[in-house]
Computed example of a mutant assay.
Amino acid sequence: MNYYEIEPLVAGELGKDTVMDPSVHPPVVSKLHFQFAGWHGDALVTAFPCFLVTEEAKRGLLAIGITGATFADAEVTISEDFHLVQPDVELPPFVWLKVDGKAGQDDFGISRTLNLVISERAFYVFDELLGLSSADFWRFDGDNR
């Protein structure tokens, strides 16, 4: 199976209610508050070190039985700038994608360079939703760079 290293759109930042331990790298987040600054329709977004997916993407990923990730609730808010720049955009529901798999083995993992790595079958779920239009991605050839 092919794997892809992906850099999703940074659609916002960790909000003030996020709880994390910054004494380790990457920081460990135990409660996620994600504040959107803008959104271009992607089903997968990020703010280091966390990832969010739409509920629709979550359903598609669960339907194929993905490995290497679980889902959790996140507090999602919109910044004042979001309202000014995109006043007519309504966000779909988003959930936290908690990645705990091995890159190049599970459907979701994190590379040595701290990028998200997804399997081809997970990639197709996002592709069907047109959910990676703002992301950069390339074929993952292992952590041997």
Rank of each mutant, 00 (worst) to 15 (best):
Y3Q: 03
Y3L: 05
Y3R: 04
Y4S: 00
E5I: 10
I6F: 12
E7Q: 03
E7P: 01
P8T: 01
V10N: 00
V10F: 12
L14C: 07
G15Q: 06
T18L: 01
V19P: 04
D21W: 11
S23Y: 09
S23C: 07
V24N: 05
V24M: 01
P27D: 03
V29M: 04
L32E: 02
F34A: 03
F34T: 08
A37Q: 10
G38I: 11
G38M: 09
G38W: 15
H40K: 10
G41A: 13
D42M: 14
D42E: 10
A43F: 14
A43T: 13
A43I: 11
L44Y: 14
T46P: 08
A47T: 00
A47S: 05
F48A: 01
P49M: 00
F51E: 04
F51V: 01
L52D: 04
L52Q: 07
V53W: 15
E55I: 15
E55M: 14
K58P: 14
K58T: 12
R59G: 13
R59W: 15
A63F: 14
I64G: 08
T67M: 09
G68L: 05
A69C: 09
T70I: 13
T70Y: 15
V76M: 10
T77D: 08
S79I: 10
E80A: 12
D81V: 10
L84P: 07
L84F: 14
V85W: 09
V85M: 08
P87E: 04
D88I: 13
L91R: 10
P92I: 06
L97R: 00
V99C: 03
V99M: 03
K102H: 09
K102F: 10
A103I: 06
D107L: 00
F108N: 00
F108Q: 05
F108R: 07
S111K: 00
R112G: 04
N115S: 07
N115T: 00
I118C: 04
S119W: 02
F123L: 02
F123M: 02
Y124T: 03
Y124D: 05
D127M: 11
L129A: 10
L129R: 11
L130T: 15
L132E: 00
S134R: 12
S134N: 11
A135E: 04
D136P: 11
F137S: 02
R139K: 09
R139F: 13
D141E: 07
D141L: 11
G142N: 09
D143P: 04
